[in-house]
Nucleic acid binder design. Sequence first.
DNA 1: CCCCGAATAT
DNA 2: AATATTCGGG
Length: 270
Amino acid sequence: MREDESNWFTKWEDQLPSPDELMPLSQTLITPHLALAFHINSTNTSTIPPIQAQNSGPQPPPLPPFQSPNSGEFDSSAGDEPARTLKRPRLVWTPQLHKRFVDAVAHLGIKNAVPKTIMQLMSVDGLTRENVASHLQKYRLYLKRMQQGNLSSHGSSGDTATDHLFASSPVPAHFLHQGRSNSEHFVPFVAVPVMQQQQYQQQMAVQYRHVGPQFGSPPNEQLFLARQQQQQQVHRMATPVHTSVTSSYIDDLESANARKVLTLFPTGND
DNA sequence: CCCCGAATAT
DNA sequence: AATATTCGGG
């Protein structure tokens, strides 16, 4: 049955957004101000440099993804710049990002799907626990509305913009059951690709929208900040290996008590 | 103290 | 409407 493992993985992998899908959104509309703020060479907006890899001197340029002055997670590491005084732009949940989210939740099972864990699984650079928590809250409401008011797809309040985003990624079947974690679909082990602290710069482009200070600015200012670093190759460590694969990261996630995860996304859409 | 989740706020 | 931030528990 190891084949199953490699199989689902392959499927999952296929669904990952391709660079082609992400690129277009990530390459434009970065104002000089933002570019400066995020240490992006503004003189080169056409080709965002890989944020600089390393070396070149005693220079710890781990490029603070995005800082939150109150988060205080990774600060005081020295080498930080005026980036600390910046407020994070509002995160925009793209379908790709949301898919990533759903995948993570699906893997964890509703039970273990809490903000922190989800965030870790997603391993999207710059994504905070708060971001996930907020999204999760809304997603749960969506699921709830789904369970009851299902059907009637043309009443009055049927499809909001919200639903569309959520609809972009099929909801795994077990999400709709309220019952409990049926010991129905359990998978021995799920080796999760892509996972590691914010060390890994994921190819996933995070889309941001910069909201105007407060006035005068029309809703037109949607800047898409993206960081597409092509250093580490995401996913790929999961081969039909029979053991070690599940060690390191699973260890981290499962440390609590879960030795198994719900089945993956039975979704084949899109 | 960390973190979740609901309630609010922007 | 979409995200963020606050706030009361555990």
